[in-house]
Design a protein around this nucleic acid. Structure first.
Lengths: 230, 230
DNA sequence: AATTAACTATGACGGCGGTCACATAATTAC
DNA sequence: GTAATTATGTGACCGCCGTCATAGTTAATT
């Protein structure tokens, strides 16, 4: 692949976006882009963590399985996002599976080489610190939801959170542009698909959630927040 | 306070430990040490986040309150640890309260000045990346425990985790060197103090958990892990 | 030392929500 | 197009665990 194409693909990623052509050069040299088809796995849980990925296009599902086979759906990542977040300057293994949800162009960078470039680019460090900080805030928020709220509220909070990470604003509603099955939503927060089904139908009856012609959820964020008594 | 004393206090903190005297100099210039007595608050939730703290001695409880008054005990931090973790190169507010559990000497550094130094010290960046990476792994692990395990298992996993962050090895057991009340343990994972009481007494009966003369828990980590069916 | 407050232990009760069952609809596979 | 798989919707059941109540113990305060 031509260098210009890699540059173009890198520019989708926020932490590279504002770098000049010269600044990008060493990164372009070590970056590859790969095409992954639907249902492929980019890496499996416990594989040695030797590279870092950035999404140019497509969607990637990050999913973890524990010893007894139970699954936790951690997130669905979209263009511009990076994975995994933990692993810089630390040896280790991938903490989860990465499965392709939609055909995707992925930028792959060996982590040791990326680290070398990183420490000589203060601008890049700053951006990465921001990204990691956001990740920490996100995780703290999810943990808080799990600790302080009952299942009904957890589902509401999940929908609201997904609005931001996997949605867009349409009119005065949020549109979830990633389709999640009830089972997937359940696996994010540790509830059952039946309870998710009942809960969503409950808020549909109140018209806080509707479906558009393509089956995407349209969510009335404000009304849903009212359901949380604050 | 004399500069040498600040240097000595900084050396307790892992990310500063291996820096030379010259490297430490600019940090010493902007660092203060403060003494906080038991039950004081270092900052309150939602205060503007303009500084970062490192513990030289003592213990700090990080605790969050939501709109309805429910409390989440996030962690009890010990010497060498930093707080908060998120906030580098991002404007914002403290996400939680920081309350002094034992009289503490705290190193305080204005975050904007620290950021300036940080970007000119690659070594420091690397260490901070490692610390943030560990924090992310920790949070992911806690989130997974909340999502995939029932209350009994959550309590067991909590005790095991606290062994690492707030304990030491004594013989073939772990000793929890921070005393937590049942209510505090409950507030970490969103259960009730009664359930914690019953669970701990249950594993005490099996001799997987005992008390030493000072009331610290002694935990048989392996035996407890057996309880989790893996 | 006395009083107050906070923590622990334990039983009883009830409800949230997990599990099972089954019908139906929607996708995927061949 | 047909079969097979997967997703959804709902009712019934019931067990885990949150809540309340009470008593006893320990710790904090004056």
């Amino acid at each position: 692949m031509k260098q210009e194409d890699i540059v173009k693909r890198l520019s989708v990623v926020p932490i590279f976006k504002e770098l000049s052509a010269e600044e990008l050069e060493p990164i372009v040299k070590i970056a590859q882009t790969r095409f992954y088809k639907h249902k492929m796995y980019i890496f499996m849980q416990d594989d040695p963590l030797d590279r870092v990925f950035f999404i140019h296009s497509g969607k990637i599902k990050i999913c973890r399985t524990d010893q007894s086979g139970k699954e936790q759906l951690i997130s669905v990542l979209e263009p511009g996002e990076m994975f995994p977040h933990a692993g810089f300057f630390r040896k280790g293994n991938f903490p989860a599976h990465a499965e392709v949800m939609e055909d995707s162009h992925i930028i792959v960078i060996p982590i040791d080489k990326f680290e070398e470039i990183l420490i000589s680019y203060p601008e890049l460090c700053i951006k990465l610190f921001k990204v990691l900080g956001e990740k920490i805030v996100d995780l703290q928020g999810r943990l808080e939801a799990q600790v302080l709220h009952n299942t009904f509220e957890q589902i509401i909070l999940l929908l609201i959170r997904l609005c931001k990470s996997n949605g867009e604003i349409v009119g005065r509603r949020y549109k979830l542009t990633t389709q999640f099955t009830n089972r997937e939503l359940a696996n994010m927060i540790g509830t059952s698909r039946e309870t998710v089904s009942r809960t969503i139908n409950h808020v549909k009856k109140k018209d806080y959630v509707t479906l558009d012609e393509n089956g995407f959820y349209l969510i009335d964020r404000e009304a849903l927040e009212q359901e949380l008594f604050y």
